[in-house]
Computed example of a mutant assay.
Amino acid sequence: MAWRSIQTGGPEIGCLEIGILLFPEHRGQGQGTAAQRLLAQYLFATTLANRLQAITNIENIAEQKALERAGFRREGVMRGLAFDGGRWHDGVLYARLRHDPA
């Protein structure tokens, strides 16, 4: 897991982008959801961030479900975002605000 500040014109670290990578043998056990939920709680408790966001490949349905279970809301599709495997892929943007229900 990792996070980085995204500049949005507001206070510094008002928006943080998070990311996660699980080894295949640990997928499908709820660990990603739990880790993202705990990270969101930690970041909201220890920073001034108002918004956390995450982007995933549009084909990564498991990660989309994990983000939703961790309290993130789907905000939209980012067309042609990433080039991988010889072709362009769309991404899906998710976000959770400080006062959103968990």
Rank of each mutant, 00 (worst) to 15 (best):
M1L: 14
W3N: 04
W3E: 00
W3T: 08
S5Y: 06
S5P: 04
I6E: 01
Q7M: 08
G9W: 04
G9A: 11
G10F: 11
G10M: 09
G10E: 08
P11L: 14
I13P: 02
G14T: 09
G14N: 10
L16E: 00
G19K: 10
G19S: 15
I20A: 15
I20F: 15
I20L: 15
I20T: 15
L22T: 10
P24I: 13
E25H: 13
R27D: 02
Q31W: 15
G32T: 06
T33L: 06
T33G: 05
A34V: 12
A35H: 03
A35T: 15
A35M: 15
L39G: 04
A40H: 02
A40C: 06
A40K: 02
Q41T: 14
Y42V: 00
L43D: 03
L43M: 04
L43V: 06
F44A: 01
T46H: 14
T46Y: 03
T47F: 08
T47Y: 04
L48R: 12
L48D: 07
A49C: 03
A49E: 00
Q53V: 13
Q53N: 11
A54S: 13
I55N: 03
T56E: 01
T56L: 11
N57M: 14
I58T: 12
E59N: 10
E59I: 11
I61N: 00
I61S: 03
I61G: 04
I61Q: 08
A62R: 05
Q64S: 14
A66Y: 02
A66R: 00
L67H: 04
L67D: 02
E68R: 12
G71A: 06
G71D: 05
F72G: 04
F72T: 09
R73D: 00
R73E: 07
R74H: 11
R74P: 02
V77P: 01
M78G: 02
M78E: 09
R79K: 15
G80I: 05
G80H: 04
L81S: 05
L81Y: 05
L81D: 05
L81R: 09
A82I: 10
A82V: 11
A82S: 06
D84N: 08
D84E: 09
D84H: 11
G85F: 05
G85I: 13
G85A: 11
G86A: 05
G86F: 00
W88D: 01
W88I: 05
G91E: 07
V92R: 03
V92P: 01
V92C: 13
L93D: 00
L93M: 13
A95P: 03
L97C: 12
R98T: 08
H99F: 14
D100P: 06
D100W: 01
A102D: 07
